[in-house]
Write a protein that binds this DNA or RNA. Sequence first.
RNA 1: GGAGGCGUCGCCUAGUCCGGUCGAUGGCGCCCGCCUGCUAAGCGGGUUGGGGUUUUAUAGCCCCUCGAGGGUUCAAAUCCCUCCGCCUCCGCCA
Length: 422
Amino acid sequence: MLDLRVLRDAPDTVRHSQAARGEDASLVDVVIAADEARRAAISAYEALRAEQKALGKQVASAQGDEKQALLARTKDLSNQVKQAEGSAREAEEALTVVQLQLSNVVEPGAPVGAEEDFAVLEHIGTPRDFAAEGFEPRDHVDLGKLLGAIDVERGAKVSGARFFYLTGPGALLELALINVAVQQAVAAGFTPMVTPVLVKPPAMEGTGFLGQAAENVFHLEQDDFYLVGTSEVSLAAYHSDEILDVADLPLRYAGISTCFRREAGTYGKDTRGIIRVHQFDKIEMFSFCHPDDAVAEHQRLLAWEKQFLDQLELPYRVIDVATGDLGSSAARKYDIEAWIPTQGKYREVTSASNCTDFQARRLGVRMRDGDRTTPVATLNGTLVAIPRIIVAILENHQQADGSVRVPAPLQATLGTDVITPR
RNA sequence: GGAGGCGUCGCCUAGUCCGGUCGAUGGCGCCCGCCUGCUAAGCGGGUUGGGGUUUUAUAGCCCCUCGAGGGUUCAAAUCCCUCCGCCUCCGCCA
């Protein structure tokens, strides 16, 4: 949700942002008009209400005929107040409806354009040349089967398409990755958090997932719960309707949770393997920080993501996501894409977003800074999303005989430096 | 699932039976000032959050806010209804 003052004072900024996203710029004027209507309605209501209260005070002390006369007036006034109150509320709700449709203002510097117009910021590591090594790389599905690490057939049998079992070394791989990720996060000062995965509507709404992303959210009709697609939701809502002490910022949390995604509209996309699944585990970094510190914090999150990937010895690139491909909440987003040998391309494994004060305003997360309270900034970044990292590890570290080399930090939990075919 | 209790502006708390002077009490904490070799104590003042409006600004005025939402009434912290959360006991289950 955007600050109405920004809309009033600098509507062009918002119009340009909407245009850069490929969204409706004229919505700005709709919101401004709704805001004016709301303010007018509130003023009208408040004037009547003030009069009613003044008269009510006289009623309390009046006697006899005088009291009867006053009662006649206040009775009439009471109806007017009720009407005006209703109008004010309708105007307020009408404003909220349109206000929620506006996306966050994009950060200057973000590449303008559609999904494919991203900017590559850097390449780290070099993809292996399997032809030179003299063998054809297996994809992660074949490797997973060979190693007894991934079972997609039974995942489909039990739960349907886009479900899987991690078995044996696969399960250990997940535990190892979670251990290393959480330890890194704790060392960096994050508070590890195991979060709810079922949340009530305000949490989902507040984080911006019920807008254009709504079709990808699982909803439990009977109980009106949503299944989170990321612990970002539970973490962002953690401090909702709270006022934080500015001296305590930044507050950094590492969310440990399962994530659920409907993947609507992706039929035929990534149908093989575990690149795109309905349920997976993820460690997510989340920061509540001072808005002035948000851009720097964004860089820190990205640096922590790179630190994690570096120790897994995976080749990857960092991209600056184009304005047309940002979610509604993000002002800027950096994705890290790991090299997937059998696809011959880089695929997203982490994503770091600066949501500025957009989520915080919706969720009522504020900070007390001197004598004022203002929304904080929220940022989130993936530390590790299990399935895609496992895909990257298996495919990049495979050897000619189908075994897979285990990166050093994971060896302790795996109990070996190489996973061999069963 | 059953029975009961509770929810007041940071924390604790008065007020709710019997609606109007509650436009919310007091304490603690915190902030400012006075006093004071220093600190403490003492004294005085301030201290919920949101919104509207006027103004260059400071500041002021107004409305809302007693878990949330409805209702009754000229008028609701107070009466009625629904919901949410917490606590105690019982039952069932991991």
